[in-house]
Design a protein around this nucleic acid. Sequence first.
DNA 1: GCGACAG
DNA 2: ATCTTGTCGC
Length: 226
Amino acid sequence: MHSWEMSVRDAVTLQKELSGRVVASGRPEAPDLVAGVDIAVSKQDSMGFCGVLVFRYSTLSLVEERYASGPLVFPYVPGLLSFREGPLFLQAYAKLETKPHVILFDGQGIAHPRRFGIASHMGVYLGVPTIGCAKSRLYGEYREPGRERGSWSMINAPDGSRIGAALRTRTNVKPVFVSPGHMVGLEEAVAIVMHCTGAFRVPVPTRMAHIRTGEYRDREPGRTPR
DNA sequence: GCGACAG
DNA sequence: ATCTTGTCGC
C-alpha cells in the first residue's frame, strides 16, 4: 500500500490523503473472532515487541497468539502512532492462521486530529473492521459520562462531528475512549467494547495482549528474523 | 508565543 | 511506553 519510512511531515500528508478512505459505519460480519493488539518497548534500546491475540467472540477464550519484534524507527509523536507501531503489528498479524473479524487497538480510531488514528490506519491498510479503544484522550471534547458501567458520552470534534465515545466500562472507574477505526460504526464499536469487557477497565483482548506481550519481551532478547 | 499531546 | 511499593477504595 505504502512505505513506512518517511518524514513526520510526509506522514501527516499521507494521513490526510488516506483518511478519505475510512468508513466509520457498519458492523463486523459474523463477529465470531475478535483480536487484541499491544506493543511493549525494550527498557534499554528502542526495540519493540508486538503481540496479536485472537479470541472467540462469544466466550472470550484465547484461540491464537502471534508475536513479532524489531527496532522502532519512527519516533513517538502524538497523532502519528501508527507510523511507530504499525509496521510491527503488520508483521505479527501476517503470522496469524486465524484471521479475526474485528480488531481492537490500544489507541484512537477517528477520534484523531486528521480522523486517522492507528485503528483507522490499520483497518484501511488491511481492509478489516477495527476499533480504537484508548486509555486517554487525544482529540475532541466530551463531558464526563455517568458513573455506572455502560454509560457513555459523545466525543465531538471542533466542527461538531461525532468522532467517539467516553465509555465507562466499570462503575466508578475512569472511562476508556472508543472510536470507530474502519468499517464499524460508533454505536457498534461501543457495544463490542462493552461485550469484551469483564472485570477490568480495559477489554479482555487488549488487556491480555498487554500482559502477554510484556512477557514475550522479557523472554525474547533478539528481534524477529525476516 | 503558549498549552495539549494515543503509546 | 517505561521507571517503581505501598496503599486507599470498592
